[in-house]
Structures are given as structure tokens and as C-alpha cells.
Measured scan of single mutants.
Amino acid sequence: MTVLPKDIPGDSLKVTVGTANGKPGDTVTVPVTFADVAKMKNVGTCNFYLGYDASLLEVVSVDAGPIVKNAAVNFSSSASNGTISFLFLDNTITDELITADGVFANIKFKLKSVTAKTTTPVTFKDGGAFGDGTMSKIASVTKTNGSVTIDP
């Protein structure tokens, strides 16, 4: 049996954390987006972790974005102690894959008090994996961190 590389060099799934701005007490939304989904033969499963400074940001909610089908079954998240974990699994293993680019999740943060303008990162942590529509590992994932700026 011969195994051929399935990824064209330079191609990767792009996962990007967005940015937001606000004043202390505001609730802002930071999107997590996927790009080049079709090039990577869709997404059938993924789990990953984001870190944030809990002294500056309070997670209000984490909701599935419009590219997630049947989110009540296929999407899960949790947030505590400065870490947000995400889990997606197409429970049907074929019919509810992520097949389009767009917003995977929206994180709502309540901004805490600061004395001066502060930009705090929302960054990928170690761990996690992504699988394509056949549940094979997506070897190349380009992750881009985001941030939230609090301006009193």
C-alpha cells in the first residue's frame, strides 16, 4: 500500500482569532474563523484551546458560528481559569461536516476595569488537533492569535 501526501505544500487550514475593542463593562464579541476549508477536504472534527487573561476578560458565552451545522449536538465549549476549550465533531461522520469558510465560534467577553488603554492577547495554547471530512488528521493548520483592547 502506498500512502501519498494529501496536502499540497503551502496549503493549510487557517484558524484565526479576531479582535475587538471596548470600554470597561462593555461586552464584545471576538470571532474565531476558519478559511481554506474546502482545500483541506472539509473539517469533520477539531479540538483546540485559547488562552486569555482572566483578570482583564470575563467569558460571558461561547457560541457556535454559522458554519457549524447542528451545533447543539456537534459543538461544545467550556471556559475557566483563562482557557477556553473548543470541540467539534460531526456526529453523523459525513452529513454535518464544516464545508465552508466563515465564523466557527463567537466568544463574548465582558471587559474588566483598567486604568490605561490595554491590549490583551487571545492566543492559541498547545494541544488539540483538526481532522478532515474523512477524519484524517489535517497536518497543516495555520493559527493566528487575536486580541481585545480595553480603553477606559
Score class of each variant (00 low, 15 high):
residue 1 M to R: 14
residue 7 D to K: 11
residue 8 I to H: 07
residue 9 P to K: 14
residue 10 G to E: 13
residue 11 D to K: 10
residue 11 D to N: 14
residue 12 S to Y: 14
residue 17 V to M: 06
residue 18 G to E: 08
residue 18 G to N: 10
residue 18 G to V: 09
residue 20 A to M: 12
residue 21 N to E: 11
residue 21 N to K: 11
residue 22 G to S: 13
residue 24 P to M: 06
residue 26 D to F: 09
residue 27 T to K: 09
residue 28 V to F: 09
residue 28 V to T: 11
residue 28 V to W: 07
residue 30 V to W: 12
residue 30 V to Y: 10
residue 30 V to D: 09
residue 31 P to H: 11
residue 33 T to P: 12
residue 33 T to S: 10
residue 34 F to I: 06
residue 34 F to N: 09
residue 35 A to Q: 14
residue 36 D to C: 05
residue 37 V to R: 07
residue 37 V to N: 12
residue 40 M to L: 08
residue 40 M to G: 09
residue 42 N to E: 15
residue 42 N to V: 08
residue 45 T to M: 04
residue 48 F to Q: 02
residue 52 Y to T: 13
residue 53 D to R: 11
residue 54 A to N: 12
residue 55 S to D: 14
residue 56 L to R: 10
residue 57 L to D: 07
residue 57 L to Q: 13
residue 58 E to F: 09
residue 58 E to K: 10
residue 58 E to R: 11
residue 60 V to I: 09
residue 61 S to C: 07
residue 61 S to L: 11
residue 64 A to E: 08
residue 65 G to K: 08
residue 65 G to S: 10
residue 65 G to H: 11
residue 70 N to E: 08
residue 71 A to F: 08
residue 73 V to M: 06
residue 73 V to Q: 05
residue 73 V to K: 05
residue 75 F to I: 02
residue 75 F to R: 02
residue 79 A to Q: 14
residue 81 N to T: 15
residue 84 I to S: 03
residue 84 I to G: 01
residue 85 S to G: 01
residue 85 S to C: 01
residue 86 F to A: 00
residue 88 F to L: 05
residue 90 D to E: 03
residue 90 D to R: 02
residue 93 I to T: 02
residue 93 I to S: 02
residue 95 D to G: 03
residue 95 D to N: 05
residue 97 L to I: 06
residue 97 L to Q: 04
residue 98 I to P: 01
residue 99 T to L: 05
residue 103 V to Y: 04
residue 103 V to A: 10
residue 105 A to C: 13
residue 111 L to F: 05
residue 111 L to N: 04
residue 113 S to I: 07
residue 114 V to Q: 09
residue 114 V to M: 09
residue 115 T to R: 06
residue 118 T to I: 05
residue 121 P to K: 11
residue 123 T to K: 14
residue 124 F to W: 14
residue 124 F to T: 02
residue 125 K to C: 02
residue 126 D to L: 15
residue 127 G to R: 15
residue 127 G to L: 02
residue 128 G to C: 00
residue 129 A to Y: 00
residue 133 G to P: 00
residue 137 K to D: 00
residue 137 K to S: 00
residue 138 I to E: 01
residue 140 S to D: 03
residue 142 T to A: 08
residue 143 K to P: 01
residue 144 T to N: 05
residue 144 T to E: 06
